[in-house]
Amino acid sequence: MSYLHSIFVAPFADMADAPDFFLQVVWEGLVSGVLYALIALGFVLIYKSSRIFNFAQGIMVVFAALTLVGLHENGVPALLAVPLTLLVMFVLAVGIERAVLRPLVNQPDIILFMATIGITLFLIGLGETIFGGANKVMITEQLGIPTGSWVVEPFGGFVSVEQKDVTAVVGAVLLVIALLVFLNKSKMGRAIRALGDDHQAALSVGISLSTIWVLVWFISGIIALATGIVWGARAGVSFALEVIALKALPVLMLGGLESVTGAIVGGLAIGILEKVFEIYWGQPLLGGNTEAWFAYMLALLVLLVRPQGLFGEKIIERV
């Protein structure tokens, strides 16, 4: 009885007792959620335009962040390091298109997926070989990101809001808006969306597949760099990020592999829910660290009810 109470009553009572703390928890969750959503977004772009389940999206975040910090460590001024890193991401996109995607065109999905696992490994090894395996500190201040914190005081309590988190959220929102404008208004953007709908049709109106792939991987690279900067500012830059980046997968499953909206909503939902679950259920009842699996279990449960994800379209099987 008391056990049931501690599961179904006590956590909610705690939330009501200290609403300011609850808000703090939700805010923290939201910030992680923004980052999950960003990674998932890069992924959705690639999946939509090429049907590739890009496992390497997470490692591209780490790779971009490492390159940025590594360049700065070697004496490149921060504001020059950013465009240089973008250049590296562009070269990477071209390289992946030439060396991996082009030779594997028309292969089964599973082969392409495995190839992106290969890319992941290659990038980890390459990053470590060039920059070393040690943890690095993100060059937050050098990039002009404010590092102080504000205190907000709702309900007579207080919520502490880090300015770099606010920057992250604002930056992410701007990035998403820019992306949506690009996808909906520009010729290339529309081509990418057309490709997602129908490969053959897109090709027949004269869009070069290679150009689009390079472009899409480059955009994913830009998103990766943005994600890497804000995440690195919170947690430092290391290959441990890769495991966190894996969380984009449940986000995608939840949102549906092809839905931009799904990626954003799924990311925010998972970020907030896993934090709330950890604080109010995980730590008091389960010994904590439930964030390691919560997102996956949640996605699994949702998929059992809706196999196509929350935003995916129902698939009718045919023979």
């Binding site: 495995m114 190839a115 290969g118």
Partner: peptide, 24 residues
């Protein structure tokens, strides 16, 4: 030994891609 590990990771990644292309 750290470098061995890094190179090892990189080579395995390249091998996977190579195999998928040449002999899936």
């Amino acid at each position: 030994s750290a470098m061995v590990e890094h190179l090892n990771t990189m080579i395995i990644g390249a091998l996977i891609i190579g195999f998928l292309i040449l002999e899936p």
